[in-house]
Design a protein around this nucleic acid. Structure first.
Length: 565
RNA sequence: GCGCCUGUAGCUUAAUUGGAUAAAGCGUCGGCCUCCGGAGCCGAAAAGUGCAGGUUCGAGUCCUGCCAGGCGUACCA
């Protein structure tokens, strides 16, 4: 906790000829509890002072002001170790949480700043696949995390609602028009059309030309093409929203690529005028070989725009509309080069905010049995995974808690929570292999484990059967297990900050696992409700604080939590 | 070919951003409910961090080279 570190710095300062900020950066938390709560490694000081680290640590230990809140300050090898009084630690941490309540972990560091999070971004006319969960839930969690730090957040679903693929879909649709009635076309039909197209395109080479022609008609505003496109988009959106709803995900805007087609042409015109863009092989490009990148392609030789063009136009629009502090793209790492190019072009255009565009990339999701391919119809539907998980949750409830009242509601929370957590506990960076058995296992480091811990905490409070005391003597909470938990609880605000700074919700996820695990260890070993009234009161408020933090952490990750399960 | 990312117990991951004896989960084996919920807890076996060098008082973390996998590399997004 900050107050203890500040105190350490205050006491060290008179003994060292080093600025406070530097001392603070040296202070760290030892790997093991036996080595204290905080430590100052003296190795870096050794050079300056021209003394051996153990000697420095020894001298500091002898000279430093001892006394509360520290029980002891001692030298071990080259380290100066600080042991915070356990009672004082408990008072500081629980006092803070009691005061902040549900706002514990929040801050106002982002006040007055806007961050736009661009995430999920499915292509219309295709169902949401399991692979969409990474962008969707990472982006959603980032929204909540930034909001907790006081930022205004804009959740932006930049729909993939433009591109040659819609030409393909139209070709496929026209072929089978008589079999399909326009009003009732579903996303499932659209997927079939898409798969059919790619099957047929392998044999009929003219199909691709037809598709390009249809896409051109669309860009030129042809009424039939536009009409079809509108149906595709509306049907898809209806379907997406249904699933987002199950995931608890909300968007502030669904403005997709189609919104920026007109501006894209404008971008091309301006870039050509300024000389940044040139014509090459019939296309329009921005050469980037100076920066060791392939050129950024803005316009194809058939005169239609590209993804990059629309991204540039969209970025301009976003800055004009929101003057964002940051624009975060939660998009797969396949597109790393694409974003480097786009950001570079924005920089060359003279936008100082280009440096505030961030690609929060993430690794591939694959499954045992191959990679996802919508074209070949080889994909796992997100909804199938959710349904399966909920079904299993439901069966477990039936087995373990048959008298539970709202079984379906709870099964939904647990099943969906398991799927969400199973994905976002991984660091963004890593490729993830989806495996049904792992995803549907609710033991160990899983979402249900966190929910169970929360429910268990609630069970204790329910068992007490009296209103919680308003205050208690926290200095009684001094067991090893309580001390470990206090330290973790005290870390929570820092965890939230780090998750935001690194665009990494998994930091919150692993924190919650550690916290829950430590709680369950405590629970096994100690009783909360006992004959000792004073201790019972202190522990009840401690339990309540744990509940607050687990609930808050799950909330930041976008995972709902039942009161019983 | 070139560029980027990844490589830690059988499997999936962590390691306070360069610090003390590399930590968990799954799986395997063995224990724990007259006591606040066993979706839990405790213990055992199991890696010296892809390989080889280097920098450093100190390297899973930084640098170099190699190996393996993934992704990307001008008209898809």
């Amino acid at each position: 906790m900050k107050i203890f570190i500040d105190e350490i710095v205050r006491r060290l300062q008179p003994l060292l000829d080093v600025p406070a900020a530097e001392i603070e950066s040296l202070v760290q938390v030892p790997a093991e509890a036996a080595m204290g709560d905080y430590a100052l490694p003296c190795f870096q000081l050794a050079k300056k002072l021209r003394k051996a680290p153990p000697a420095i640590a020894g001298e500091l230990a002898a000279k430093i002001e001892q006394g509360p809140p520290f029980d002891t300050i001692e030298a071990v090898k080259g380290y100066l170790n600080f042991f915070v009084n356990r009672g004082k630690l408990a008072e500081a941490v629980l006092g803070r949480i009691l005061a902040d309540a549900d706002r514990y972990g929040e801050s106002d560091s982002g006040r007055g700043k806007t961050v736009i999070i661009d995430f999920s971004a499915p292509n219309i006319a295709k169902p949401l696949g399991l692979h969409h969960i990474r962008s969707t839930m990472t982006g959603h969690a980032l929204c909540r995390i930034f909001a907790a730090l006081g930022y205004r957040t804009v959740a932006w679903n930049y729909l993939g609602d433009w591109g040659t693929q819609f030409g393909q879909l139209m070709v496929s649709y026209k072929k089978r028009e008589h079999e399909l009635s326009r009003g009732e076309i579903t996303v499932k039909d659209l997927l079939d059309l898409y798969v059919q197209y790619h099957k047929e395109a392998e044999e009929e080479e003219t199909l691709d030309d037809e598709a390009r022609a249809w896409f051109r008609k669309l860009e030129e505003g042809d009424p039939e093409a536009a009409g079809l496109w509108r149906i595709f988009r509306e049907e898809s959106l209806k379907e997406f929203k249904r699933i987002y709803d199950r995931l608890g995900v909300h968007f502030d805007t669904y403005e997709g690529e189609s919104r920026f087609v007109k501006e894209s042409m404008e971008v091309i015109r301006r870039l050509l005028e300024s000389g940044l863009a040139v014509k090459s092989e019939g296309a329009v490009i921005v050469p980037l070989d100076q920066w060791k990148m392939p050129p950024c392609l803005l316009m194809k030789k058939d005169g239609t725009t590209l993804y990059a063009t629309r991204d540039i136009a969209a970025a301009e629009f976003r800055h004009a509309s929101y003057q964002f502090d940051r624009l975060v793209y939660v998009v797969g790492s396949q597109q790393k080069l694409h974003f480097r190019q786009v950001f570079k072009v924005l920089e060359l255009m003279g936008y100082d905010w280009a440096g505030r565009c961030i690609h929060a990339d993430f690794g591939m999701l694959s499954f045992t049995g191959g990679t996802f391919s919508t074209r070949r119809g080889k994909l796992i539907l997100l909804e199938d995974v959710l349904d399966k998980a909920v079904e299993i949750a439901r069966a477990i409830i039936e087995e373990k808690n048959p008298t539970l009242e709202n079984k379906d509601e709870v099964a939904e929370m647990v099943g969906v929570g398991a799927v969400i957590f199973g994905d976002i506990k991984h660091r963004r960076n890593k490729d993830v292999v989806f495996d049904w058995d792992t995803a549907l296992n609710f033991d160990g480091e899983t979402g249900p484990y966190l929910q169970y811990s929360y429910v268990r905490l609630g069970g204790i409070i329910r068992k007490y059967d009296e209103p919680l005391p308003a205050a208690a003597n926290f200095s009684l909470l001094t067991t090893d297990e309580e001390r470990a938990l206090m330290k973790m609880l005290g870390d929570f605000p820092e965890i939230v900050r780090r998750a935001a700074a690194q665009y990494e919700p998994s930091i919150v996820a692993s924190y919650l696992l550690d916290l829950s695990s430590a709680f369950n260890t405590f629970y096994q070993k100690h009783r909360v409700i006992s004959d000792d009234r004073e201790l019972t009161h202190a522990r009840l408020l401690f339990v309540s604080a744990l509940r607050t933090v687990i609930r808050k952490g799950l909330d930041l990750l976008g995972i709902r939590c039942p009161e019983r399960m």
